[in-house]
Amino acid sequence: MRALLRIAVVLALLSGAFVLSAQDPESSAPAPAPTEYRSLDALRRGAPLEVEPPAPPMARVENRDLRRQRGWPEQPPTIPHAIDGYQVTTHANRCMVCHSRAGAEQFQAPMVSVTHFMDRDGQVLAQVSPRRYFCNQCHVVQTDAPALVGNEFLDVDAVISRQRER
């Protein structure tokens, strides 16, 4: 019994020492000067941590049905309309009501390209390949939200004509 007690006391002392040594050695050092905090973070939008920034107006989804230019040939086209309430679940895919082979004529919508029927070996299937089922993995709506960062993208035509000029 006494031996046990002695071990316990030693253990308690050891752990106390550990806790002391784990404390921040510079805890008494002065705090760094505040710097302006900027980021792409949509929640804080560059406001300092102690300030609650006012909410920006909510962006509206463009619903004009005008197709947009693609940045490069393989780019998945962006959706030129709102898709509120369109169900894409294991049960139903409302995009394919109009964009399927069978629906394209009735709704005058562009049919999904043949790549959507291919499996990963390039074999063309009878229906849209399961790996293409979730449309929003590649296709997205566009809003009128201002761009958060600038961008210097040049499409391939611009790059070629620049090269010619040189």
Binding site: G85, Q87, T89, H91, A92, N93, R94, V97, C98, G103, Q106, F107
Partner: peptide, 29 residues
């Protein structure tokens, strides 16, 4: 489609208010 009377609202607007059941084989247009 509506002006010509060939279709009615529910032909195209299924699932307007609730989650849809398995739509395999159900015409939706």
């Amino acid at each position: 489609w509506l002006g010509s009377g060939e279709r009615t609202c529910i032909d195209c607007h299924k699932g307007i208010a609730h989650g849809l059941p398995d739509m395999a084989g159900v015409p939706q247009g």
